[in-house]
Measured scan of single mutants.
Amino acid sequence: LKGVVVAGGVLAGAVAVASFFLRNKRR
């Protein structure tokens, strides 16, 4: 169960970083 929580956190972080980079590329 702990691994699932960690994986979810990593996935959420990756999505946040990806969206951040996409926003920067638009400018």
Rank of each mutant, 00 (worst) to 15 (best):
G8N: 10
K25W: 13
V6D: 05
N24I: 13
R27D: 05
G3A: 09
R23M: 03
G13E: 04
A14V: 11
A12N: 02
A14M: 15
N24V: 14
K2F: 07
G3K: 12
G13K: 10
V15W: 10
V5H: 02
V6I: 14
L11Q: 00
G9Y: 03
A18W: 13
A18V: 15
G9H: 02
V5D: 01
G13T: 07
A12S: 07
G3R: 11
K2G: 08
L22Q: 03
F20R: 06
F20Q: 04
A18P: 00
L1P: 06
G3P: 10
R27W: 07
G13I: 08
R27K: 14
G13Q: 05
V17K: 01
L22G: 02
A7S: 10
R26M: 14
V17I: 08
V15M: 14
L11E: 00
A18M: 06
G3L: 14
K25N: 11
V5Q: 06
V4F: 09
G3S: 06
G9K: 09
V4T: 10
F21W: 13
V6N: 04
A16F: 05
A7G: 11
V10H: 01
R26P: 15
N24S: 12
V10Q: 02
R23I: 15
V17A: 12
V15T: 04
A12V: 08
V15F: 15
K25A: 11
V4Q: 10
R26G: 14
K25T: 12
A12G: 08
G9T: 13
K2V: 09
G13R: 09
K25Q: 15
K2I: 07
R26T: 12
A12P: 02
L1V: 05
V17R: 04
N24T: 08
G3Y: 14
L11I: 06
V5T: 09
V6C: 09
N24M: 08
G3T: 12
N24G: 10
V10N: 04
G3N: 12
G9I: 06
A18K: 02
V17D: 00
S19L: 14
V15D: 00
F21T: 02
V6P: 01
L22A: 04
V5Y: 00
K25M: 15
F21D: 00
A7K: 15
F21I: 10
G9L: 08
K25G: 14
K2A: 07
N24Y: 09
F21N: 01
A16T: 07
A14F: 06
V6A: 12
V4I: 05
A18E: 00
A14P: 01
K2N: 09
V6G: 03
N24K: 14
G13V: 09
F21C: 05
V15G: 02
K25V: 13
A18Q: 01
V10C: 10
L1W: 11
N24C: 15
G9A: 08
R26S: 13
A12W: 14
L1F: 12
V5E: 02
F20C: 07
G9E: 05
R27C: 15
R23G: 05
R26A: 13
F20D: 00
A7F: 10
V10F: 13
R23H: 04
R27V: 11
G8T: 12
R26Q: 13
F21L: 11
R23E: 02
K2E: 01
L22M: 08
V17Y: 08
R26C: 15
K25Y: 14
A12C: 12
K2L: 10
R27P: 11
A16C: 08
V6E: 03
G13D: 02
A14Y: 11
L1R: 11
A18Y: 09
F21V: 10
G3E: 07
S19G: 07
V15A: 14
L22P: 00
L1G: 06
F20I: 15
K25D: 10
G9R: 05
V17N: 00
